[in-house]
Simulated assay, not measured.
Amino acid sequence: MNKVRAFWIVLALLFSSPVWAFQSRVVAIPSAAMRQSFDATVVLPDDYARGNHTRRYPVIYVLHGSGGDYTDWTSNSRIGRLADRYHVILVMPDGGHESWYIDSPFNRDSQYETYVGNEVVAWADAHLRTIATKQGRAITGLSMGGFGALRIALDRPETFGAAGSISGAVDPRACEDEPGIAHVFGDPARHASYWNRNAIIVRARDFERDHIDLTIDCGVSDDFVSSNRTLHQRLVELGVPHDYAERTGGHTWAYWSNAIRYQVLFFANAFRRNGGYQQSTRA
């Protein structure tokens, strides 16, 4: 191959390959409920900065799992590219190591449902060019974050139009041995009623009422696959529309970094269908 031909081939590859120019930044988001601020990762699509400065974008809130933090998704996956591909804002808040994203009645310093479901959303709408309607918001997460995303969406159907769970711990009653969980759920024997009524499986009927676009997936080798199958079957019995998938894999980043691609595609389709991509010239 001569040098001239090689040059043109390289040039063609450069212009045909996608250029990922999303912006990733760490911000501090205050919590009145917990009287402190927590860091979060925000990813903005490339055209957010260089395009029409009156354009507004739908937002996907992506939650980390137990023992993780706000850097997990960007450190372990290529999630940022999805912001460019689907023209969405991604917000990845810190949910504490073992908060389970609930407002714990047993630990007043752990009020992460209010923080993520109310305060983070309010911050995003105030500081970013978001589409501040339920049709322009989705929430998902992995493991503990999958539980948190579904619970937050169930409790705030006026806020989130779509929700997802990846390898979700949808039945905390199967996680009694998880370090730290009793600090927020209480002792599983003495406070069994609290554990029971907060299991997503028990609350499946609420999805029937709330009309949330719903997607759930889990790896076939994941310890949580049984509870996810039970939730799926319950939703089928209730006639609740939802997307459910099992794929090869376990409770690992190899699975999660692949699954998030399908979930963001699902949310993008929901935004298009429900008007969540509508642009605004409002300042």
Results as ranks from 00 to 15, higher is better:
residue 193 S to W: 11
residue 117 G to S: 11
residue 206 D to F: 10
residue 95 G to M: 04
residue 122 A to E: 13
residue 197 R to K: 13
residue 207 F to M: 09
residue 60 I to S: 01
residue 243 D to K: 12
residue 182 A to M: 11
residue 252 T to F: 07
residue 71 T to G: 03
residue 20 W to P: 05
residue 146 G to L: 02
residue 139 I to F: 01
residue 169 A to N: 08
residue 245 A to N: 15
residue 217 D to R: 05
residue 78 R to N: 15
residue 138 A to L: 04
residue 19 V to G: 08
residue 137 R to E: 00
residue 135 Q to A: 14
residue 281 T to V: 13
residue 228 N to K: 10
residue 142 L to M: 15
residue 150 L to P: 01
residue 216 I to Q: 06
residue 259 A to I: 08
residue 276 G to M: 08
residue 98 E to N: 15
residue 186 G to P: 09
residue 153 A to I: 06
residue 205 R to Y: 12
residue 146 G to I: 02
residue 107 N to K: 12
residue 124 A to N: 07
residue 15 F to N: 07
residue 274 N to G: 05
residue 34 M to I: 09
residue 176 E to W: 02
residue 158 E to Q: 14
residue 3 K to G: 00
residue 248 T to I: 12
residue 267 F to H: 01
residue 225 V to T: 06
residue 163 A to W: 00
residue 154 L to N: 10
residue 19 V to S: 14
residue 185 F to N: 02
residue 217 D to Q: 09
residue 120 V to T: 06
residue 156 R to I: 00
residue 220 V to P: 06
residue 1 M to H: 12
residue 182 A to S: 15
residue 95 G to F: 01
residue 83 A to D: 10
residue 1 M to G: 15
residue 186 G to K: 08
residue 125 D to L: 04
residue 230 T to W: 06
residue 147 F to Y: 15
residue 137 R to I: 00
residue 63 L to A: 03
residue 165 S to R: 01
residue 95 G to W: 04
residue 194 Y to V: 04
residue 37 S to H: 01
residue 149 A to M: 03
residue 185 F to I: 05
residue 188 P to T: 10
residue 24 S to K: 13
residue 181 I to T: 08
residue 99 S to R: 06
residue 264 V to H: 03
residue 24 S to T: 14
residue 152 I to A: 01
residue 149 A to Q: 02
residue 255 Y to T: 11
residue 217 D to T: 10
residue 8 W to I: 12
residue 255 Y to S: 09
residue 59 V to M: 02
residue 40 A to L: 03
residue 248 T to D: 14
residue 38 F to Y: 15
residue 211 H to P: 08
residue 28 A to T: 14
residue 99 S to L: 10
residue 35 R to W: 09
residue 40 A to P: 04
residue 17 S to N: 10
residue 123 W to M: 04
residue 149 A to G: 05
residue 231 L to M: 08
residue 157 P to R: 09
residue 264 V to P: 10
residue 72 D to L: 08
residue 144 M to Y: 04
residue 162 A to W: 01
residue 132 A to P: 12
residue 119 E to D: 08
residue 1 M to L: 11
residue 48 Y to H: 06
residue 31 S to Q: 04
residue 116 V to N: 04
residue 119 E to Y: 03
residue 278 Q to R: 15
residue 38 F to S: 05
residue 202 V to Q: 14
residue 182 A to N: 11
residue 229 R to H: 15
residue 272 R to G: 11
residue 111 Q to G: 10
residue 79 I to P: 04
residue 30 P to W: 11
residue 109 D to G: 13
residue 81 R to M: 13
residue 6 A to F: 09
residue 89 I to L: 07
residue 223 D to P: 00
residue 243 D to M: 13
residue 89 I to T: 04
residue 281 T to Q: 14
